[in-house]
Design a binder for these strands. Structure first.
Length: 272
DNA sequence: AAATGGCCCAACCGCTGCAGC
DNA sequence: CGCTGCAGCGGTTGGGCCATT
């Protein structure tokens, strides 16, 4: 036993990530992928343990993360999957494109569980259930305060679904078919968030030292280069439905469920 | 206007499973 | 076949922010 700690603790930073750290991590992953999380921080010049880097990437910096409120559809799916899978958050997250296990776990504990316990689909009192706009603001606030040069996208759409990662570039690319996360987008909002993000970025960082990522960053080719693994196509998954005003959340959800079903991931589930 | 309480979420901790040797 | 190291997972916590008093 006595397994060695995951990382040498001395001299390593902990706590909230700075914009510079985020940028370093993203830049490094962009160039080299993440074949070895343990070695990554050293190679990337980060004073973090590999675990921390991995978590930050997976839960926050990944380009395909969807942020914002969970839709009723998503929540219903979570409830259903939780009933079947239990606390296997990663398995549940696998059925919710763009959502992380951590996020789902948080939502479960802070919203859904309480509602189920209450028995009537109401969240308690006023504050519970921050207004969507507020939630978005929170995300932005956090992001900008210690945060990610990638602001969590402030462009929270009315559907409550937004798309966070990679301020400029993600916004620019968000309509890309590669981007599994996006389900609805309002260009004007994206534009607004883009402007905000740039401002935050510019004010917080030396652009010379950390030049803004160009729009091509999040393109599929780059993402593949980043070592994120196979593209959806390579994994046997088709791209999500193209965005359109007629595309509904249900359709999107159904699409992904069908894809996963076809891929065999859910063969043993009676979900559908 | 200030104090307090509660909510939310990012991040950490510790354990498990798996692959390589 | 056991050991070791790594990635991944789930539980928990700390701190910021907002609503209420």
């Amino acid at each position: 036993m006595g397994r060695a700690p995951c990382c040498e603790k001395e001299g390593l930073r902990r706590g909230a990530w700075s914009a510079e750290e985020d940028q370093r991590l993203v830049a490094y992953v962009r160039q080299n992928g993440h074949p070895n999380w343990r070695a990554l921080p050293r190679q990337a010049g980060l004073l973090r343990c590999g675990k921390s880097c991995r978590l930050r990437w997976i839960n926050y910096l990944r380009p395909d993360i969807k942020r914002g409120n969970f839709t009723p559809d998503e929540e219903a799916l979570i409830v259903r999957l939780h009933r079947e899978l239990g606390n296997r958050w990663s398995a549940i997250a696998a059925q919710l494109p763009g959502r992380t296990d951590n996020e789902i776990k948080n939502v479960w504990h802070t919203h859904i569980k309480k509602r189920l316990e209450d028995g009537h689909g109401e969240e308690k009192k006023a504050r519970k259930g921050k207004p969507a706009a507020k939630k978005a603001a929170d995300a932005v606030g956090r992001s900008s305060e210690h945060g990610p040069f990638l602001t969590a996208s402030p462009g929270l759409s009315s559907s409550g679904v937004t798309f966070s990662a990679a301020a400029d570039s993600a916004a620019a690319v968000s309509s890309s078919a590669d981007n599994a996360a996006t389900t609805s987008h309002h260009p004007q909002q994206v534009g607004a968030s883009k402007a905000e993000s740039s401002t935050e970025l510019d004010s917080g960082l030396s652009s010379a030292e950390f030049p803004p990522l160009d729009d091509s960053f999040w393109s599929s080719a780059d993402v593949v280069d980043m070592g994120l693994g196979a593209t959806d196509e390579e994994l046997g998954l088709a791209c999500p439905p193209p965005l359109s005003s007629s595309s509904t959340r249900d359709e999107d959800m159904e699409f992904w469920l069908n894809m996963l079903l076809e891929a065999g991931d859910m063969r043993d589930l009676s979900v559908l």
